[in-house]
Computed example of a mutant assay.
Amino acid sequence: MGAQQTRWSAETRCSVAVFREESLLLVRCQEGGEQVWKLPGGHVHASEGLIACGRRELKEETGLTADRLHCAYVMDVEEHQSGRFMVEIVLMPATPVQGEPRECEPGRVPIFVPVSELDGLALKPAETGYLHGMYDLHRRDYTRIPAKGVAGVGRLSR
């Protein structure tokens, strides 16, 4: 008698972490009757690359455009209520993103939130620790971009 095999399938989601000064761009929305906060992002479409997905989702959810993105970290997420598994690929701009955030999708409001306030938010997935670490790198390794007209970071040459 053979052992029953369990098939695992995971969804792939790309999100983009955009810092401006001491704040991080998050999207406020409702899920299951509760207010949650997320990085701008979403699921990868068929025949779409990860970077293309990040660019598309950033534009669709916030109106911002990004020329260059790079991978900041990857998370394995299990949603206990639904039993779903997800691979969250978090991207970060390698050059300044263009535009000002605006509500592009009804009920999904992009807001720059001070990094110091992340611990008090219902962040989904729960990645506050990673984001604090990214912010520390942002402060140390990336230039500060003026808040007017440009959101994001640019790489310092060394």
Rank of each mutant, 00 (worst) to 15 (best):
A94R: 09
V90W: 01
E48R: 14
L121A: 08
L123V: 11
E57D: 02
L121I: 13
C71F: 03
H45N: 11
G42C: 09
E61L: 15
H138L: 10
E117W: 02
H132N: 07
H43I: 11
G49V: 06
C104D: 09
H132D: 00
S82Y: 09
Y130W: 14
S116V: 07
P101A: 12
E60S: 04
E79I: 13
S47G: 03
G107W: 00
V74G: 08
V77N: 03
A151D: 06
T128C: 14
V97E: 00
P110A: 01
R55I: 06
A66H: 06
R102P: 00
V44D: 02
L156F: 05
H132S: 02
Q98T: 14
Q81Y: 12
L58A: 13
E117V: 05
G54K: 10
A126P: 02
H132Y: 12
R108V: 01
H138F: 11
G54V: 12
D76V: 04
G120Y: 06
P101F: 03
R108H: 14
T95K: 04
L156G: 03
D119S: 11
Y142K: 09
S116W: 04
E88V: 14
G154L: 14
C53M: 06
R140M: 09
R84Q: 06
Y73E: 10
M134L: 15
H138E: 15
Q81N: 10
E48S: 10
G154M: 12
F112E: 04
T143N: 12
C53Q: 01
A46W: 12
D141G: 01
G133P: 02
G133H: 12
L64K: 04
G154W: 08
A147W: 12
E79C: 10
V74F: 03
Y142R: 08
V150L: 13
T128E: 12
D67S: 15
Y130G: 01
Q98I: 02
P146G: 13
V109T: 15
E88L: 05
